[in-house]
Amino acid sequence: MRYLIIIVGAVLVNNFVLNRFLGCCPFLGVSKKTETALGMSGAVVFVMTVASAVTWCLDHWLLAPLGLGYIHTLAFILVIASLVQFIDIAMKRFVPPLHAALGIFLPLITTNCAVLGVAELNCKNGTPFIESVLFSFAAALGFGFALVIFSGLREKLAWADPPRCFRGIAVALVTAGLLSLAFMGFNGLVKLPY
């Protein structure tokens, strides 16, 4: 039950994008087509889950024993960056179409604050290993959920005819705002452990 609450909480109630406003860059950048959004979601789920596991280990077994808690941000960035780079190389080799579709946004996962954010949150809350991996997984799912919904909306918006000053990213931001407004209905749906 506790695990279910973690998942519902991270996907719906405290959605990373729509409630915590983390990871807005790929949210706006890779949401023009549903296919790319799905690919990006998959990549983020993978990266975030693996990254949180790695950073948890790093934090608990290396940084904490050495009393180096103050440099964990630095260490996390280093690890996440290399991990993303590794996935980038592997993807180019094994799934080139997806690699081409994600383009610049795959390396951008490096700077996706959601990845660092989830690691930091786990670190701050002192979450146990299983729960932090689950939380990261759910948070990434929530990110992907929001991204796919938003991509559907943006595919529809491609046919819209907004006034000149609102064309492109402006109208996308308005839509994101309204989506965020809609998700506020989930406020307090579950009592969050974190």
Partner: peptide, 30 residues
């Protein structure tokens, strides 16, 4: 879900539910 969640912030969920499903409409159509 919104109406019956004991800790929920809102007693009524109709508007939010329709808004959320509005967001899902393009995907449903697809």
């Amino acid at each position: 879900l919104i109406r019956t969640a004991p800790t929920g912030a809102y007693p009524e969920g109709v508007s939010f539910s329709i808004l959320i499903m509005n967001a899902l409409t393009p995907l449903i159509n697809r």
